[in-house]
Structure formats: structure tokens, C-alpha cells
Amino acid sequence: MTKKYEELIGELKEIVRKMEDGNTSLDEMITLYEQGMILVRQCEDRLAEAEVKITELGRES
């Protein structure tokens, strides 16, 4: 199952937080940046899904 937008955003925020905490080595930083950019792209793709899916339930079920 694909991750929810909320989960993606949460992971992204955590990565930004880690990058800004000041104790990260350069190697870690590069890895985090790459992960972060992937997440940003995934979020943007998710937002680009313009079509709203609408389902109507039957009156009685």
C-alpha cells in the first residue's frame, strides 16, 4: 500500500529537523538530503493528482 500524504510529510519534516539539529556528519547529511528530495517529489506528485474520486453510497446498505 502506498504511503499517505500525511506520512510522507511527517517523514520529510523529520528529515529537515535532523538536518537542522547541527550534529549531522556530511555523509549523513547527503543521505538525508537525497531521501528528503525523494519525499518532496513524492509529495508534489501526490498533490498533482487533480482528479477527485467521488463515490456515492446506496441509500440503504
Binding site: 519534516k13 529537515v16 538536518m19 556530511l26 547529511m29 547527503i30 528528503g36 528530495m37 518532496v40 498533490l47
Partner: peptide, 22 residues
């Protein structure tokens, strides 16, 4: 959507800036 995209751009900038600083 627009403010979310803005927020994403902002986060991307922050990450880039951090990486550059580092």
C-alpha cells in the same frame, strides 16, 4: 494545494541550505 506546494518548496530550500552550510 498551493500552500502545501509552497511548504514543500520551503522545506526543499531549508534542506539545500543546510547541506550547503554543512
Amino acid at each position: 494545494r498551493e500552500s502545501e506546494l509552497d511548504a514543500l518548496i520551503h522545506m526543499r530550500k531549508r534542506m539545500f541550505l543546510q547541506l550547503m552550510n554543512r
